[in-house]
Simulated assay, not measured.
Amino acid sequence: MEDKRYAVLIDSDNISSKYIGVILDEMTKYGVVTYKRIYGDWTSTQANKWKKELMENSITPIQQFRNTVGKNATDSTLIIDAMDILYTESVDGFCIVSSDGDFTRLASRLRESGMHVIGMGENKTPRSFRAACTVFTDLELLLDQSVDDASSKNEGKSKLKKKAENVISQKIIENDIIEIITENDNKGRETGLGEIGSRLQKKYSDFDVRNYGYSSLSTFIDETAAFDVKKKESTVFVALHSDKDMKKRVKKFAVDVVAEAGTKGIEMGQLGQKIHDEFPSFNVKEFGYATLSKFIYGIKDLKVETSGNNKKIVYIR
């Protein structure tokens, strides 16, 4: 199978020259770079830092004079070049290196034409551009990793120097993993580590466990209390951590609260709040329920009725 061919297009106005090494190293994971172009005004003093890197890495500089103060002509030139390369049908994908959200539409247009679009930028890059790419990687992560690799051979979790901005929270990622596992459980099948990684990447183009201080997805999941990781032959599977005692305690607490409310019962929302206050770490999704109300419906000692004003009231059965 032949390596895929990529065009790497760099916006020098928004990217520091210190990243060029890690950019090209990262691209070796995807295929062969056949175009290496960088855009900017090479008559400006700001571009001087790039000149050494251009020669050492055989990158073609594309000159764009600043015809109007405050306008970024580099963007237009890069976009035109990208479309010209697209129509040559000589590449399988593009790597757009910029922290500028103005390239969002370009990334979308390239993907509409069947291109694999890799985005790279600093952690300030807007979510719009991140989401438009097939894959997006924060350059700070790559640079930090290269420094760590040079100083030691650490495996597993590594301390990041700076938490990336505009990155999906770890809690949201964990909930997504729970939903994937629950969906498969309902279909009677196990969930592989590879499936989780693939589905998260499709949902969040910038998903990268390095954003959360880990070097591998398996370590990320293994250190999360909600999951159990097991290996069968050469395949790694992930399951929800089963804490039956927690489930029993929550059920008993819910029944006790409703019983204390007497014949008046208690509103579903109030009961849910009391459960949350008593068990702040309790997550119904870890037990296969989509919502807390579904969990309460499943408690055999309780019944739920709808009042005249459409409120859900919970009573002892």
Rank of each mutant, 00 (worst) to 15 (best):
A7E: 07
G192N: 05
A107P: 11
I20G: 03
S281L: 10
R199T: 11
A226F: 12
D206A: 13
N211Y: 00
N48L: 11
D206V: 02
Y35W: 04
A47L: 00
K303Y: 07
N175Y: 07
K251E: 15
I168M: 09
H241F: 09
N72E: 07
A261T: 04
L24H: 00
K29I: 02
D144W: 04
R189A: 03
E223R: 04
L302Y: 10
L139V: 05
S158R: 08
G262S: 00
G119Q: 06
R127C: 11
S158P: 00
F103W: 14
S293R: 13
G308E: 09
F207Q: 08
L78N: 04
S99Y: 03
S242W: 00
L143V: 12
F129H: 02
A82E: 06
E155L: 03
I221S: 00
D144A: 01
R5F: 04
K285H: 06
K157I: 01
Y19A: 13
I96E: 08
E190M: 12
V22I: 10
S198F: 12
E179D: 15
R127E: 12
V209M: 03
D75W: 02
K230W: 07
W50K: 06
K171Q: 12
V69A: 13
E233I: 08
T306W: 01
C95I: 04
